Computed example of a mutant assay.
Amino acid sequence: MVLVQEADFNVQALYQDLCIANDTGAVAMFVGRVRQFTEQVDQDASFLLEHYPGMTERNIEKIVTEAKQRWPLLAVTVVHRVGELRVDDQIVFVGVSSAHRAEAFQACDFIMDYLKSRAAFWKKETSQGQSHWVEAKAADEASLERWSK
């Protein structure tokens, strides 16, 4: 399941959906939250996450398909929020289930690395009345290198 939405998500419900197969031996999940992104605490800090509807979902589905080709996964769920988000909001859920933990951990990590760099989201941070578009980070691109080996 791949969802791109403005609404928040329920981690417990998403976890339950990953446990549907009788041979589920492992579930690995990642929940990303909006952290304080300024040096000074700003209660009004927010960011706007934009996407290209249709294209973003297709990009995420390609990432999920590749993960399923690399590891024997039973279920995969990716939920990514868009719109205006504030510090402490949940922003992304990646969950995978498999028979064994190693595959679940690796696939979850792989999907998250690719989401950070290849899923077609644009982020505009606003703090203390100033806004700017966030550039891609070299560290995110470097994380992808380990999956090409």
Rank of each mutant, 00 (worst) to 15 (best):
M112F: 14
E57F: 02
E135D: 15
K116S: 00
Q90E: 14
D89Q: 09
L74S: 10
P53L: 10
G54Y: 11
Q69R: 13
Q69I: 00
L85P: 07
S127M: 01
A139T: 14
E141N: 04
A142S: 05
K62D: 10
A67L: 02
S117G: 09
V11E: 15
C19H: 12
Q106F: 02
V27W: 03
D44W: 04
A120Q: 12
Q106V: 00
P53W: 09
F9T: 13
R86F: 03
L74I: 10
V79H: 08
F30M: 08
R146K: 15
F110M: 03
E61T: 12
S131L: 04
K116C: 02
F121W: 11
V87C: 06
N22D: 15
F47N: 02
F37Y: 11
S131N: 06
N10Y: 02
W133R: 04
R146F: 02
Y114Q: 09
E6G: 03
P72V: 01
E6Q: 15
S97I: 05
E57M: 10
A75C: 12
Q90C: 10
K116Y: 02
W147D: 06
V64D: 07
F30L: 13
Y15D: 01
A26E: 09
D42Y: 00
A67Q: 05
I60N: 05
A120F: 09
Q130L: 12
E145T: 06
T77A: 08
C108V: 09
E135Q: 14
G25T: 11
V82T: 15
C108A: 14
I60P: 01
Q130D: 05
W71G: 11
V27D: 04
L49H: 06
D109F: 07
D113K: 12
A136W: 01
A102T: 12
T56P: 03
V87K: 15
R58E: 11
H100E: 07
A119C: 09
I91G: 00
L115C: 02
T77N: 13
A138K: 11
E61G: 01
K124E: 14
Q130R: 13
A119T: 02
L49A: 05
Q69D: 05
L18G: 09
R81F: 13
A136G: 09
I20A: 10
D44Y: 10
H132G: 04
D44M: 10
M29R: 08
E141L: 15
M1K: 07
H80T: 07
F105A: 06
V92E: 09
K137V: 00
R70P: 03
V41C: 01
M55Q: 12
V94C: 06
N59S: 14
D44G: 01
V87P: 08
H132K: 14
Q40I: 11
D42Q: 07
Y52P: 06
W122R: 07
H132D: 06
D109N: 13
E61Q: 15
K137L: 08
D17V: 01
I91L: 13
Q36M: 11
R146S: 06
A136R: 10
F105D: 03
D8R: 06
